Computed example of a mutant assay.
Amino acid sequence: MTLDDTQPVRVVQGGERRAASRPKLSPLDDARYRAPGDSRWLLDTFRYPHLLAMLLKKGTSTRYYGSVMGWGWSYVKPAMQFFMYFFIMGVVLGLTRGLELFPLYLLSGIVLINFYSEATRAATNSITGNAALIKKIYLPRELFPVSSVGSAFIHFLPQLVVLLAVSMMYGNFAFSWLAIVKVIVALAILLAFTLGLGLLFGALNVAYRDAKNIIDVFLMFAVWMSPVIYSHEMLRNVVPAWVYQVYMVNPVTVAVELFHEVFWAPIVSEPQIPDFALTNTIGGVGIALGTLLLGQVVFRKLEGDFAQNL
């Protein structure tokens, strides 16, 4: 038996030649092993699709567990909210006189505001609500806010179907590629903005439980901070120009106005489409992505202390 000349050798006493043993890699040096927390941020959620699917299933299946109506509440609650705003704002205060087909205008915004409020609140509470799991094992903590927003989006889909059906009942609504693109852009903006807020306040809520209360107060004004129950024209006449411009690039406002353009404007005779709609949309996209980046950075900065603070 001969030794390969290319292998390192060492000479021992008596002239015997032996192959030098190669140093073994420690598990910590092996590329297959990664330290807990050494993730690729939100991209890591796609490395655990089974866990994400389980959390989504939990969020959707247990929401109405033990309820007689079950998923029917996904229709009843927004319907009650719609009728309340329609009667008070439309009938009592007379806003219907300024907006043609006010019920459809109102419904187009209400469904988005409901999704935005529910998803932001759920994502903020997602880390503290899974404290027992986080303290026992490691998994990408971003999975919890992502699954919370995903579950809220699943419950939003029936409301979107109702909005589409009502819009088609009102008049000559027709599908178009531009309408589909506007709906996708509106939902993408709102998803990015909501997830960014969820990551930011979800992380802060672990160390400072005031974050949950801040979000609750903030969401109380959500329906008033976007043109849901009034037209953007009404605000432009009573606030400074720069306030109106900031208001119009608010990601929630951009998403609501895109929904108005798709589900309401094609049916009415004189729709109130905002000036510089494309510019506002680009600004909303930038703010939504900036919020998502900020939320992810803060989340990664604070997640090392999650188990300790929980």
Rank of each mutant, 00 (worst) to 15 (best):
T6C: 01
P8N: 09
V12E: 13
A19Q: 15
A19I: 15
A20N: 07
R22I: 15
P23Y: 04
L25I: 10
D29G: 02
D29F: 01
D30H: 10
A31H: 11
R32E: 15
A35L: 14
A35N: 14
L43P: 00
L43Y: 04
L43F: 10
D44Q: 10
Y48I: 01
L55G: 04
L56H: 05
K58I: 11
S67C: 06
G70L: 04
W73P: 01
Y75E: 03
P78M: 05
M80A: 13
Q81V: 07
Q81W: 01
F82H: 04
F82S: 08
M84H: 00
M89Q: 05
T96K: 10
T96S: 15
S108V: 07
S108R: 03
L112H: 03
E118P: 03
T120M: 11
T120Y: 00
A122H: 04
A122E: 13
S126C: 09
T128D: 15
N130Q: 15
A132V: 04
K136Q: 15
I137L: 15
I137R: 13
P140S: 07
R141E: 07
E142T: 01
L143H: 01
L143F: 03
S147T: 04
S148F: 14
G150D: 09
G150N: 07
I154C: 10
I154L: 15
I154T: 06
F156T: 01
L160T: 00
S167G: 15
G171W: 05
G171Q: 06
A174H: 13
W177D: 02
L178E: 15
I180W: 12
A188K: 08
I189F: 08
L200H: 08
F201A: 00
F201N: 00
A203T: 10
R209K: 12
R209M: 02
A211D: 12
K212T: 06
I214Q: 07
I215Q: 05
V217R: 07
M220C: 05
W224S: 04
I229L: 12
S231M: 03
N237F: 01
Q245I: 07
V254S: 05
L258C: 06
H260E: 13
E261H: 10
F263K: 03
V268G: 10
V268I: 09
E270I: 14
Q272W: 02
I273K: 05
T279P: 00
T279D: 00
L293W: 14
V298K: 08
G304T: 03
F306S: 06
